[in-house]
Amino acid sequence: MKKMLIILLIIAFLTPAAAYAQNSDQSSSQGDVSGGEAYNPDYNVLPISLALIMLYLISYLLYDSKIIRKVRYKQVWSIALVGSMLISGITGIILVLITDYGVRFNLNFNLLFWHVETGIILAIVLFFHIHIHWNKFKRILKANT
């Protein structure tokens, strides 16, 4: 029953992902920006969120079907969380130093763009982290513990 639900969820998330990809493809071929003039495709909130949710559902399905062990399943998402936190955090701190203290770094890439992209990953993976460690969260948040 749980496996069926997860497969249905994957299909449910594949549909908007496919629609979004098709829409982006048509817009780029027409030379128009989707979502109207105000749409700024610099940040990829929806594609990143959909991709991560699908990956999470697939990894959960693999763990639930005992194809991968619980340790490996937890490890993948812990590494994703720590990695995205470090990159987003460090780029954020650098941006603050640049803004606050006028510090100049000789960097060849758009810091803010990567801060936002890894921040989106961090935000989504944070919800997965809460789901994976839900029992521990319940215990910690329980007043009488």
Binding site: G35, G36, E37, A38, Y39, N40, P41, D42, Y43, N44, V45, V116, G119, I120, A123
Partner: peptide, 11 residues
Amino acid sequence: GLLISIFAEYG
């Protein structure tokens, strides 16, 4: 953060 990036992406 998600709110800010959504507002920025959709103008």
